[in-house]
Nucleic acid binder design. Sequence first.
DNA 1: ACCGTTAGATACAGTCGCGTATCTTAAGGA
DNA 2: TCCTTAAGATACGCGACTGTATCTAACGGT
Lengths: 215, 215
Amino acid sequence: MDRKHGRTRDGGTTRDGGASRRRGPELEDAILDAAWDVLVEHGYHGFTYEAVAARAGTSRPVLYRRWPQRDDLLLATLTKFWQPIAVPDTGSLRDDAIGFLHNADADRAGMITLMSVQLVDYFRDTGTSLSELRDTLIAPGQATPFEMIVARAVERGELPDVPRSSRVVNLPLDLLRHDMFMTMRAVPEESIVEIVDEVWLPLLGVPRAPPTTSA
Amino acid sequence: MDRKHGRTRDGGTTRDGGASRRRGPELEDAILDAAWDVLVEHGYHGFTYEAVAARAGTSRPVLYRRWPQRDDLLLATLTKFWQPIAVPDTGSLRDDAIGFLHNADADRAGMITLMSVQLVDYFRDTGTSLSELRDTLIAPGQATPFEMIVARAVERGELPDVPRSSRVVNLPLDLLRHDMFMTMRAVPEESIVEIVDEVWLPLLGVPRAPPTTSA
DNA sequence: ACCGTTAGATACAGTCGCGTATCTTAAGGA
DNA sequence: TCCTTAAGATACGCGACTGTATCTAACGGT
C-alpha cells in the first residue's frame, strides 16, 4: 500500500534510536515517567496521548491499550508521583513548621501543587475539584502534616492541650498554596517565615518575643 | 461556486434570526458580552474565536478584524467585566469583614475569581500569573479592601493604631480565594465566619468572648 | 439616491489531536 | 526451536480550530 514500516523510529526527543524493545512494567514505567514530564511541562492542556507517546518514544496505540481514557492515564501518573511531603521533627514547633513549608515549597511537592493548578481543565471536565482529588490521593483518616506537628508540640509541652480548629492548624499550608496559586512560582523563604511567625504562631498563642507569660 | 449566501443566519443559540445588522460599538459590546459568557462557562480552554463568534451570532472574521490575537480579545473582555467588589461600611470591623467576604463570594466577583482559575493556560502561555493580572487590572496605589476596613476600624477606635503586616490585614481574602481555588465553588457562609472569627479577629487582637482584658 | 464602509456568510488550506485498524517483528516462555 | 504475545509503526477518517480570502448586502452619512 505505502511505506509499510520503514524502521524510522527517531520519535523525537527521548528514546534512543536503539533496537531494544521494552515490555510490560518496564515500558509502563517509562510511559508514566514521560507522562509526568509532559504534565509538568505543558499542563493538562498539553497532556495528550500524542505528546505522551512521543515523549516516551512509543506510539499512541500502546497507550490506548493500557489506558483507554485520558483520565486513566492521568490518574495512573498522579498516583505514581504523588508522594507525601516530608514532615521534619526538630523538637521545635517553629522549626517544624518552617521546615515543612520549605519542603512543600522546594521539593517536587511544590511542583505538584503548581501542576495541580494546571489541572483546572480536568476539574472542569469531570466536575471535581482540587480538594476532592487530594482526598482521593491521600490516605483516608490520615493526620495532616500540621496536625502531626501540633500534636508533637503538645506532647513536648510546647503547646497547651486544648482543642483547635482544623482551619487554624492547617493554615500555613493553605497560605503557602495560595501564594503558589497566585504567583505560579516557588514561594520565597521570607514569605514562609512570615506565615509562621506573623500568622500561625501568634494564632496558637505563642508569643513572638521571649515568653513573658503575661501578667 | 456554491450557495453564495443563503440568509441562513440562525447561528445557534444567541442571536435572534432577525434581519438587523449591528455595527460599531453596539456590535463590539455584544461580542464582548458573548466572550465573557464563553469564558465563564468554558474557561480559557474553550475561549476560541469559533465559540465566541457563534455565541455572539457573528462570524470569525469580524472578531479577527478587531482583535487579531486571542490575548487582545481576552484582555478586552476582562477589562470590561472586571469590577471592584463592594466594601460595606457597617460601623463594625467584624461585620465589614464578613460582609465583604460575602460580597466577594456571592457577587459576580466570586465568578471572577473562579474564572481566573480557568486562565491558568493563559498564564502558561504568557508566562504571567494571577497576581500580575490582578495588578494590571486594579488601580495602582489603591488601598486593598481590607486595608480600608482596618483603617476605618482604627478611626473608630475599634482597633489600636499600630503597624500591621499586609499579610495579616489581607488574610481573609487570601483564605477565601484559597477555598475557592480548592473547591471550585462558592464558599459557604460558615467558612467565611470561621475565617473572620477564628483567624482574623484573634490575629488582630480582638477577643472572641466579651473582653476579659486578661489578668 | 448614491456610495463607501463593514457585517456577516462562506470557503479553503492547514494543523493537531482523536480513536481505531492493520501489519510487522521483537521478545520471551515452553 | 517454535509460537504466542504485544510493541511499535503506520494509515485513515474524523472533528475542532486557525487564519485568510472572497463575496454580498445592509447600514449610514452626504
